[in-house]
Design a protein around this nucleic acid. Structure first.
Lengths: 205, 205
DNA sequence: CTTGTATGTTTCCGATGGGTAACATATGTT
DNA sequence: AACATATGTTACCCATCGGAAACATACAAG
């Protein structure tokens, strides 16, 4: 019977710390987490945080390492005709994924006010995925890469921003971003945008 | 000769405090400003901050009140033919305005992690302007309001986000958002988007 | 000249922040 | 059995935080 609390079990204490910091991230974000708070809230002596993770940042890094944050995109290759529907689905998926994942929202917010090694790494990964995705759409559709890149960036950037904003700001330009109805409206608008983008038999590509 | 420092001059002291907090906002953002830092950095006793502004938040509020942050849009009414060019210019203006205004960037970031009365007020003002602008575009173009709202929201939201991101993140989806060339690319993409949006003689409006 | 008020300085307080030393004990190795 | 090491507890240090009291003085009104 090793389940008694306070037992000597490094693995269990590390898990306690990781669970605690998850809750704190969800509650208040990465920005305001102090080591004393982590210690008291987890019931673990703060010295152990230093010993096992080096610092609070180390603990955060360990937590993030556990969760592969953007390794969830489908690898399917749509045909040219399926491309618009594929993209519509993809952006709907992005919205759902972000709205449902509180830690990821906090991470995106943290990225705006901080420049860790950790964050830089995550950025590099994200950038690689984004660029390769754009490259595929570009090859498939024949549209110029620069234009596709801007289009994709505006869509994902606005989704990211509005999801972060929704926590405190219920309405944006008349859209109820804190409700499913508002996001349904946004998704429909994105659908229309994608249709217009690809239906235009442009002269210059 | 009242110009000696340390003289009794409330107006001058208040100005010193306002200047100081402006620098601190630009330097580190609203989030991490403490009253002790303001006092030492301005050379003004912190008790005076309490007396004159109630608190650091009060000082921030006074600073914000001095600067009307989104009272800069032109009131001209374009004709229907001029509308696309008008909108292109407008978004270029938004980008320039935001990129050049460090305090405004900080304010937008602050909004994501805070819910003051001050921020709520600013949101209400911004929302009113946004909705009225969308209303005008809607009447002028004849497009459905919901679609215009989504389009406008995505454009401004993505601009806001990317401007905030550019401080630490040099590249986003292959776009050099920390350089003028990258923003020129974005502006061209927005131009193309607007053209495609309005050139489509859609069936449903 | 006196008195009240606005402006400003100095000093202190308790709470909390990050960080560490000293100590206690369980566990595994030889 | 003896020892080294890993795990955990307790107490402490120093810096900084927000906040306020006590005091000093210029200035204007009477």
């Amino acid at each position: 019977m090793k389940e008694k609390i306070g037992e000597r079990d490094r693995e269990a204490t590390e898990k306690r710390l990781l669970d605690t910091i998850e809750n704190m991230i969800i509650e208040n974000g990465f920005e305001k987490i102090g080591i004393n708070a982590v210690a008291t809230q987890s019931g673990v002596s703060k010295i152990l945080i230093y010993r096992y993770f080096g610092s609070v940042e180390g603990l955060m890094a360990a937590y993030i390492r556990q969760h592969d944050f953007w390794i969830n995109l489908p690898v399917e290759e749509p045909s040219r005709e399926q491309l618009p529907d594929f993209l519509k689905k993809m952006f709907r998926g992005q919205i759902e994924h972000l709205r449902v994942n509180p830690t990821l929202k906090r991470l995106y917010r943290w990225e705006l006010s901080c420049n860790n090694d950790m964050i830089v790494n995550l950025r590099v990964q994200r950038e690689a995925m984004g660029v390769s995705r754009i490259e595929r759409v570009c090859e498939l559709s024949g549209y110029p890469r620069e234009e596709i890149a801007v289009m994709a960036s505006m869509l994902t950037a606005s989704i990211t921003y509005l999801v972060m904003l929704e926590e405190y700001c219920p309405v944006y330009n008349g859209i109820a971003i804190n409700q499913n109805s508002g996001w349904e409206q946004i998704s429909r608008g994105i659908d229309a945008l994608i249709d217009k983008f690809f239906k235009t038999n442009g002269n210059e590509h």
